[in-house]
Design a binder for these strands. Structure first.
Lengths: 207, 207, 207, 207
DNA sequence: GATGAATGAGGTTTCATTCAT
DNA sequence: GATGAATGAAACCTCATTCAT
């Protein structure tokens, strides 16, 4: 049976309920640790209902992934980054602020669900479709940051902007994710400061 | 029945065969995608034999993890890093070389099995024991790099060495891992160069 | 996944079918000789269905035990014992009749399934929960017989009624169970007569 | 490979060690709960050695059963019963003493291993060979007690001695076994006294 | 003869998915 | 459309027994 596309309000609510339940369970117990019956139960619907909204478990995960990246992206942009992006950047301290704000925004955005984040990145392999999907989402970030750097390219200390974006984005993502995800002795603030220093010097200080 | 500790030669060989098979399969198909029967088959033994050497699938994974980190560590050290570590570092170009060599050594070490690496890091969650184990292994790296930086602390541009080590290690690991792991348009060399620049400027160029 | 509590009619029927099948198989081949797949097959359901109604094999056995004792108890009571219990007992031959009727009722009740009976008593050990459950059911009998004897305590030849009940109940149970259970040369009637004599003299004839 | 019949001392010791280990484990964990590897381990030999002394697990159990009945029988006879059996029995109190001594001897004998006893009786079904073996051993008791009663037949209150023996032996066995086997509130002594009363009145007091 | 490693059939259990109501 | 019961393939694991050394 093909998955239903709900048009009525009730149907849309059910679909959302399933996605929310799935999101929570994936975050808590992982994709493999969660089964469709549980998702249905948590969503307050029958197993069969689950399958009338989704063909399989996987597409549910896809949607959750998409939703997650949308949330992160919205959060970063909403959090002043967009504003910065549109303001003129001239002075040295403007650059510093740019880096600072972006890192803080990303850090803030990662409150959303570090558990889900790890589950998503963990699943990047194992299924080519999942990889494809995640790469696409990541590329949006890469493109965004690339555009941002392009805007200030005359002041950049780096030459290979394409490669630089990769380095910068994945480094920042990883360091911040780990702060959110794990217990650690060093205060987050200290690590964020160092990360900021690293980014700033790399991008704007000629060595 | 408790896992067997082989005493005869044959037993030791079998145990190794099982671990090798498991390692290959985990790398290829992931932990969840691999089952004990397959491992046994690939190792050329019966299912029961698998279970007389290991209580469950998990401890096999543990051993594989340990072995992997040992390999990586051996490779990095063997690959000149150790040598650098023991040589005097004075001039600007010495620092540059230090960073360069370490990054290249790490890159080289990641040939070993990027697939296994991702599977290991993916499994860092879901099982507290796995997390514990991996954290321990990671800490060895952190400590090593920390010691290295301490040696040149008077020339370091960073102040908070503890936080800096975290930032540096995880950034480098992540960027390199991605190079090994994914298809991408940008040549590895370009990314490695940028990574090197970033590290160098951060650590040794006051901004 | 937790055992299902059926709500629909169909589910209740399935549950009953599983219990019936299990009961028959436990009686025929013993608890250890019966496996879940067989139970499911005999009940006409898939293996998975079995496990959606019961978490394990053991709880099925529990239910079968409970059902068995209920049947026995119902049979004994229905079979005139209850009536006797409520009638006045005065003369010597009343006492004789009391003993006679109870023993015959018990004998009759043991038609139900001597095989299951032995399997149940055999399983009294090995699992504390099973023991607990069986002891509880046995105590109901002890209590019932104790009450019966208490009613005629002034005519009883025994003094320690508490101990007497234990002796009487377990002796009768065992002798009758063996009649039902095993091939033997001596006719059941002869053994029952002797059992009756033993009980009667013990309880009502001062020696 | 056919089971070995050891002739040398060492072989006999090994065989005994295996049987002792098996006996202890069967008593502790039941026949089904014990596996050959464990038996071998507890006996301090290799698995293979176990199988060079016994073809299968079952014959080990057979031997254990035989040994157990021999022990019980020896204990009862050694414990004065034999003496009574050979002494003249005339007076009322002689009969009383006869019953008393036999019951106490049986009670004493059941110290040996109530756990093994239950495991043996539990296994009476499930395997025809086991049943056969146990019945034979039980019949020895029946015959012995039958002979005893025959000796005093002129003073017996029962007429059907054959049936009486069955009733008496199984009742006593069961009641005593339960005393040994289970926790209970009533003191053993009280139950034994009642059992004695029951037996005495039944056998020697005309009602 | 003893050792302990190896076997593999068979049991238990799980869960994504389908289907009858 | 919704429900929850049913499916069965496939995973996990055990252990009586055989076999190579």
């Amino acid at each position: 049976m093909k998955a239903r596309k709900p048009v009525q309000d009730r149907g849309i609510q059910t679909r959302t309920a399933i996605l929310d339940a799935a999101k929570a369970l994936f975050a808590e117990k992982g994709y493999h640790g969660t089964n469709s019956k549980e998702i249905a139960a948590k969503a307050g619907v029958a197993t069969g209902t689950f399958y009338s909204y989704f063909d399989e478990k996987k597409p549910v995960f896809f949607e959750v992934i998409r939703g997650y990246y949308r949330e992160i992206s919205d959060a970063v942009l909403a959090d002043g980054a967009l504003e910065i992006y549109s303001l003129p950047i001239r002075t040295k301290s403007d650059f510093r602020r740019l880096v600072h704000e972006l890192i803080r925004a990303l850090y803030k955005a990662h409150t959303i669900s570090p558990e889900l984040h790890r589950e998503i990145t963990a699943m990047i392999y194992g299924d080519p479709e999942v990889e494809q999907l995640i790469r696409e989402e990541e590329n949006k970030t890469i493109t965004l940051v690339g555009a941002l750097l392009a805007k200030v390219s005359d002041r950049l200390a780096v030459e290979d902007i394409g490669a630089a974006v990769e380095v910068v984005v994945h480094s920042a993502e990883e360091v911040i994710h780990r702060l959110r995800m794990f217990e650690h002795d060093i205060a987050d603030e200290r690590v964020l400061n160092e990360l900021e220093d690293m980014m700033y010097r790399y991008l704007f200080v000629k060595g």
